[in-house]
Design a protein around this nucleic acid. Structure first.
Lengths: 156, 156
DNA sequence: ATGGTGAGTCCGGATTTCCTACTCACCGGT
DNA sequence: ACCGGTGAGTAGGAAATCCGGACTCACCAT
């Protein structure tokens, strides 16, 4: 999954190298929902079993999931998110919100999420410093290494 | 890219069906930075030219990018994000922040983004209703259709 | 002894990706 | 007029992945 040539160094690319393969984020979705058993994952995601096994191995390897024994005899396992995995959940929620709005036009949503405040969760990405929602026009990119060039309106 | 069997209906899966293929989100990154020309994309992403061409076609088709002529003669094109594309940028920023923290341990970042407020952008996903940051423990999933089952701590 | 479940592995074929090279249109210099 | 260079792709075949279905293995339950 690593890009081959000599692309830019970039944390987005790095993150995608780790969770960007097909099904990986869906695995995380299920695991965050508590459906962490192999057969549940197969059913809910619809992935081939061998591919799923490969993804699970990888996600454990990179520290996003852990494999826990929940029954000694018979041996039964369950995958659970690590802290790093849980911290990816906001990405899922943001993606869900985008999909809800752009792909389902905000109607007929298959799932909603309730926030502890009592309202339906509509995730919004904000600037930690000032609290304002992140809008494209408000951003300026600052390359820190050679190899990054930015030409457009978001340029530094 | 659609999952094959009969997986859950899910906006996350839908979104990934559209931007989840290899390189798609990196294309969006570049395009949001203003680097929307074919050869720039090839260089900056490191993707094979034919794959990139396929991704661009698809992203235009689904309304995330537009192809603009920026020079009539010689004919030269540039890809730019649509509104829907720009609204995916928060996903990229959130992913970047995760990668910065977990894959680079917060040091030696290849790029930083400045928010209009003057601070370095550290994206935070919040609940639009109450403004609090989204944490896993504060969420409850509510399936709206049959086929969704949730067993774990985030269960409804 | 038979059947069922969970958690995978294995196999052969279908699909994608990758790499390299090639095209085509145009421009700019000499 | 010729030569080289750039932008934006296409083309072709080898290599890597993915897919579906069958199979395994260990362990209950009846």
């Amino acid at each position: 999954m690593a890009a081959t040539k000599d692309p830019r160094p970039c944390s987005i690319a790095d993150a995608l190298a780790v969770v960007g393969e097909k099904y990986s984020l869906l695995v995380l979705r299920e695991v965050c929902l508590g459906n962490g058993r192999f057969d549940q994952l197969v059913r809910n995601i619809g992935a081939p079993r061998d591919i799923l096994a490969a993804r699970l191995r990888r996600l454990v390897e990179v520290g996003i999931l852990t494999k826990r024994l929940y029954s000694e005899r018979p041996q039964r396992f369950e995958y659970r998110p690590t802290q790093a995995g849980l911290e990816l959940e906001p990405v899922l929620m943001t993606l869900k919100e985008w999909g809800d709005r752009h792909l389902r036009k905000g109607i007929d949503l298959p799932m909603t999420v309730e926030h502890v405040c009592g309202n339906e969760l509509v995730p919004q990405v904000t600037c930690r410093a000032c609290g304002e929602p992140v809008r494209h026009e408000d951003l300026t990119a600052h390359p820190q290494v050679p190899g990054w060039t930015v030409t457009g309106p978001t340029a530094a």
